[in-house]
Each structure stands twice: as structure tokens, then as C-alpha cells.
């Protein structure tokens, strides 16, 4: 597994976590016709942290994820990862910049198996083209082997062995959420965007997810930006929490501060 292409260490992980902004969201504004989904959103995500992003339905959380992964265009503002603007990149270059994501409503490749979905997640790390693949050159088989080793590791990690070769169309929502996470981890992202990973999980499963998210940071050295409606989960697992409402940042601080922030309470209680 000691593969150059997969090495995502960005700094010495044994050193105390220093607050280097891994991602800077600067004044991001997005409009859909009349509505302003994001309105000057600004915050940083530091390397090595788990950052929660909360807000009521329609606050703009998924829209922000879509901007970061270049699914939507920003009308104003900029998004930098390690000082590099993502907005000058194409959607297909986001993984190369170290950003992986899951989708709120699942966006799996329904006719591919679990293992194939995960291997596809590592597509950005390979260099195979049509010709080399058609001729099955040695390089292709080597790359395939390293993708499949990584997939096997993630399949074990996420407890997916029993369904590894099943087409994803046959599996339950909760299982598919895991597959999405495995797929996003396949290329060793520096930054993992999780959009409501607890959706569809029961109480017991949420507890496991809480451990998993911490573990992803500790053992896979991945910074996490977590969107979740399950507030207890977010507050427990995050180092920092950003709250947005109607596309604006209303609070940014420790879980404790954000939980008690009057604007957050107001947004959630819907005054």
C-alpha cells in the first residue's frame, strides 16, 4: 500500500496539528434565478481537523459542496485548496487537488459492483488510456492491482466484504452510504466532504459512524468537512463547527460556542 500515487501525507502527522488552512472558502456567492443560495460564505478548514457544517434545510450546505467539487459555478468569491484556486479547475481535476466527496442522495454507478465503484474512486491516480488498456500493457495490470488492493483495504475497513461483488443496485441505503464513503476514500483524499453520512442510519449505526469519522482522520490522515443534521454527532466529532443559514455564515467556532450561539438557536428553533 506504500504507493507514491496514494501518499496523501501533507505534513508530519505525528506533530501536533498546526492550523494550516487546507481549504479557504472566500466570499462565495451563488444565485439560482431569484434566490441567493450562498451569500458571501467565508471560512477555513484546517489541515487535520474535522470541521462540522450545519444549518437548517435549504441553508446552502449541499450547494457549497457542489461549488467545491465544481458541480456548480460560483457567481462570486473563490475557493482555495492549499493556496490553489479550485475555480480555475475543471470538475475532473478536483480529485487531483485532493478533494473527495460523498453525495447526499447517493450518486453511485448503479450497474457496477461495490468493488468496481470503489476502484473507480481511484481513477484520478491512474494514467491508463484507451490504447494501453486495449492492449493490456503491464502498466495497466499494475495500476489495476494497486487500485484493487486499495479497494480491498477499504472493503475490509468499512465491513463490506459480504457484498463486495454485488451490483450496488441490490443494496440498502445505509450500505450504499458506506460504499460512497469508500469510493471517496479510494484516492486518499486530503479533504473529504461528507454530505449527511448519517442519513438513513439507526441510533446504533450512528454511534459507529461517529467512531468511523474520527478514525478516518486518525488512521487515513484525512481532513473532514462534515455536513450533518444529526447535531449530536456533529458536536461530538468535530473540532470546529460552522453554521450557515439562508446562505450566510452565522457562527464559526468550537462545538460548544456554536451550539450556544443565539443565531444558531434561532435558526434551528425557527423563530
Amino acid at each position: 500500500m506504500e504507493n507514491e500515487a496514494f501518499d496523501n501525507t501533507i505534513d508530519d502527522q505525528t506533530a501536533p496539528r498546526v492550523s494550516v488552512p487546507l481549504m479557504e472558502v472566500k466570499d462565495v456567492t451563488v444565485r439560482f434565478g431569484g434566490i441567493t443560495a450562498l451569500d458571501g460564505v467565508t471560512f477555513d478548514v484546517n489541515a487535520g481537523e474535522i470541521c462540522g457544517l450545519i444549518g437548517p434545510n435549504g441553508a446552502g450546505k449541499t450547494t457549497l459542496f457542489n461549488c467545491i467539487s465544481r458541480v456548480y459555478n460560483c457567481d462570486e468569491g473563490d475557493i482555495l485548496v492549499l493556496g490553489q484556486s479550485l475555480l480555475s479547475k475543471g470538475r475532473h481535476e478536483i480529485a487531483k487537488c485532493g478533494v473527495g466527496r460523498t453525495f447526499q442522495n447517493l450518486a453511485l454507478f448503479k450497474t457496477l459492483s461495490v468493488r468496481e465503484n470503489i476502484m473507480l474512486g481511484g481513477h484520478s491516480t491512474i494514467s491508463t488510456g484507451f490504447l494501453s488498456s486495449a492492449l493490456r500493457l503491464k502498466r495497466v495490470t499494475e495500476e489495476e492491482r494497486s487500485l484493487s488492493e486499495r479497494a480491498d483495504m477499504l472493503i475490509t475497513y468499512l465491513g463490506l466484504e459480504a457484498v463486495a461483488d454485488a451490483p450496488v443496485s441490490e443494496l440498502t441505503f445505509a450500505t450504499l452510504k458506506r460504499v460512497e464513503m469508500a469510493r471517496a476514500l479510494a484516492f486518499k483524499p486530503k479533504l473529504l466532504l461528507l454530505d449527511e453520512p448519517a442519513g438513513g442510519l439507526n441510533h446504533h449505526e450512528v454511534d459507529h459512524l461517529r467512531q468511523l469519522i474520527s478514525d478516518v482522520r486518525e488512521t487515513l490522515h484525512t481532513t473532514v468537512l462534515l455536513v450533518e443534521h444529526h447535531l449530536n454527532l456533529v458536536m461530538d466529532v468535530s473540532d470546529r463547527v460552522v453554521a450557515i443559514d439562508f446562505g450566510r455564515v452565522i457562527a464559526d467556532g468550537t462545538p460548544e460556542d456554536v451550539r450556544n450561539h443565539p443565531d444558531v438557536i434561532r435558526a434551528y428553533l425557527g423563530e
Binding site: 500500500m1 506504500e2 501518499d7 501525507t9 502527522q13 483495504m153 475490509t156 475497513y157 468499512l158 465491513g159 463490506l160 466484504e161 459480504a162 457484498v163 443494496l171 450500505t175 458506506r178 459507529h208 459512524l209 467512531q211 468511523l212 478514525d215 488512521t219 487515513l220 490522515h221
Partner: peptide, 13 residues
Amino acid sequence: MSTATINPVLEPV
């Protein structure tokens, strides 16, 4: 860093 020490956290599906 090594990923060889990774242990499953979730209950198997």
C-alpha cells in the same frame, strides 16, 4: 505512515 494497521470500525454488512 502505513495503512496496514487499519482495523474495521463498523459492523460488517
